[in-house]
Design a protein around this nucleic acid. Structure first.
Lengths: 188, 188, 188, 188
DNA sequence: CATGAATGAGGTTTCATTCAT
DNA sequence: GATGAATGAAACCTCATTCAT
């Protein structure tokens, strides 16, 4: 995962993976058919990790605004703690999701979040605190995008803006900003 | 650009580039030192393209809400029309912006947009239509992120959600959604 | 060694080396970092060979004139039998000894000959058979040079003088000549 | 000549030669058929240079010991002043004198030195100052070899002996040494 | 006399993968 | 379960040379 995360699928080296793993290169082929199968395994693991974490969220037991705030914070922190998730996804998108499409495992562990977010939005609308007509898929993508893009594109953004966007203060400001944008949009 | 966009820096092949360009492989080395120098040239060109397009925007002559809507639509359409910009940037971020940092050209053509967006936000606040305390850099990154992530991660998102997010209808819905999110956040 | 000897460092071909060695080209890179590292290994081996041979000389157990004659004959025969030593050295000198300077191995196996030759000269001087004031380093270089130049530059010398200087008779005459020059100089 | 001298025939680059000459690469091909023809031209020029210089020697007008001393000093100084001569010759020998053999020009300008040296040796023998039975070709090669090897192999020798053999003092000592060796051998 | 553009052949090196044990 | 040795295909890059003007 580390090798793929830092170098991408194409840039990763079997030699590098073997060394990081402390095993002989040949052993990798004992367990995995080829490099792409190994990549898929890494991808599946990162998806499993995030699904696992999502299960702790319990959005259904919170009042709607709090639930959304929690989802935002969770997303932000997970991406921050798991940069390999971002780079693995970028690699997979470069390959037009060809591995993901083959993966039974990932298809089986579909996220409950969109469903849960839909419920939260509906509750909020009924309570009169949220606006109506919000597509939970789009909102989910927006929350993800607001966090993902900032972190994934950090090197170019920091360079272009001449500002260290990974500094602790910049990071906490970003979380506040994302929360304000989403809540500002949702709240009546 | 096309080759780098589809395959990434590591995956692109000099042979492929030569073929697409209709020239001898050797000729590429006549003009460019090596693959990375060529990549940087492609990157610089895409930056030049977007800066060129930005100059047509004239945000300063519009009333604040209209100016923001225009910036959003511009960003969305540019990304949609120039998918290579997204993948080149992803490649560059995978390499921690190492080429960009070396590029005098890119540093010289810094975007006027953040400055202009700051002016628009200030005007809107004085007019009483926009909320105060908005950092233009963060808002700019948010607008970009809302569009970028949807398009760049489209293959995995479409797969995960089991929904064709590149269908024309989905695309126009996305633009509306982004606009609503940003305006919902900004407007008092 | 054979390939480097015949073609020089620049002219040697990895393909040629692989073929001579009867192995796959790729295997060479399994054991050696690159062409220059392989060249250094060849160079180190030739040095090891001559040092090994030098150890059999036992100059210290001979009377001085005999010791010098033996050193001359040894030098001559070693060069004659190991033409690759001459060409490898020429290559290395063309590169200003840059590989040799990096080589721990060669530095560690410094020749005992200069020391031994110094002892022999001193003994001869005390016995009254040799002249005094002879720098063993210069004498060593002279013995080497008298042999080396004749053999290394044989193609051009034979061409210029219109005389086959590699003919057996010419070779034995050369050894006699070198011996006479050195002994004529040394003996009182 | 400079490029060939520093890099050898194989290592020299047409680009490098063009740059040093301050002309377009194509122009070289206007005057010379190919790289080897250019190399031959360089080689011929260095030979012409040394023949030109030899003509100033006038050995026949000096008494024998003085004539030999002068030849030694001349050889030493010429090699020292023209290091390119040494490296060009080394290259040519690596190629087994194949260019030299083709060269009409070099064959036509055969050195008068061996003939002259033969005369000097004969005069010296008749005067009773020189030993008899000295082959002028071998002596000529010896004088050359004593100088050539020291200079041509200087990088490796300096490295092996851990001593800067190109220092001014070392150089003047070398000339003295060579002179002593040759005169010590020749004089009765 | 002079040059910028272009090229084919071939060079070193890399890399995923397999063999043999 | 584990490994050192081996390999074919292909990658990037180099270089002498020629084309067109």
């Amino acid at each position: 995962m580390a090798e793929f995360a830092v170098k991408g699928l194409g840039g990763a080296r079997i030699d590098g993976i073997a060394e990081r793993a402390g095993v002989n290169k040949r052993l990798i082929y004992y367990y995995f058919d080829n490099k792409e199968a190994l990549f898929l395994a890494a991808l599946e693991t990162t998806y499993a990790d995030i699904r696992e974490a999502e299960r702790e969220l319990k959005l259904e037991s919170l009042d709607p605004p709090e639930a959304v705030r929690r989802l935002i914070a969770f997303t932000w922190k997970h991406y921050l703690k798991h940069p390999e998730f971002l780079t693995l996804l970028n690699s997979e998108n470069l390959h037009r999701a060809k591995h993901l499409k083959q993966s039974k495992r990932v298809r089986e562990m579909n996220s409950p979040l969109v469903q849960l977010l839909g419920d939260v939005l509906e509750r909020g609308r009924r309570d009169g605190v949220f606006r109506g007509g919000v597509d939970p898929v789009h909102l989910y993508i927006s929350i993800a995008g607001l966090a993902y893009f900032y972190l994934s594109n950090n090197p170019t953004l920091s360079t272009i803006f001449g500002r260290d966007l990974m500094a602790p203060k910049a990071l906490s400001e970003r979380l506040s900003h994302i929360t304000e944008v989403v809540m500002g949009y949702l709240l009546n």
